[in-house]
């Protein structure tokens, strides 16, 4: 692997920070990254879509609880 970035390599390749796991799921037919919070609920972290209108839809707003 050849990394090409101005960041120090120890910043990029440092030990993984302790945090809740992220996972990729589909929410209403859109791929989304969700994170499991301390309360066990999955909250939408990031919408993976190229359609800018999706980002205005309340179903895919960051922090939305995913069933």
């Amino acid at each position: 692997m050849v990394l090409y970035t101005p960041l120090a390599l120890e910043q990029v390749l440092g030990p993984p920070s302790e945090g809740a796991a992220e996972m990729l799921v589909e929410v209403d037919q859109r791929p989304c990254v969700v994170r499991v919070g301390s309360d066990g609920r999955r909250r939408l972290e990031r919408l993976l879509s190229t359609d800018p209108r999706d980002f205005l839809d309340p179903r895919w707003q960051p922090g939305q609880v995913v069933e």
Binding site: V25, E26, V27, D28, L44, P58, R59, W60, Q64, V65, V66, E67
Partner: peptide, 10 residues
């Protein structure tokens, strides 16, 4: 998987 209804969230 579906987004939870916003009404569920206080």
């Amino acid at each position: 998987m579906r987004a939870a209804r916003s009404g569920d969230e206080p």
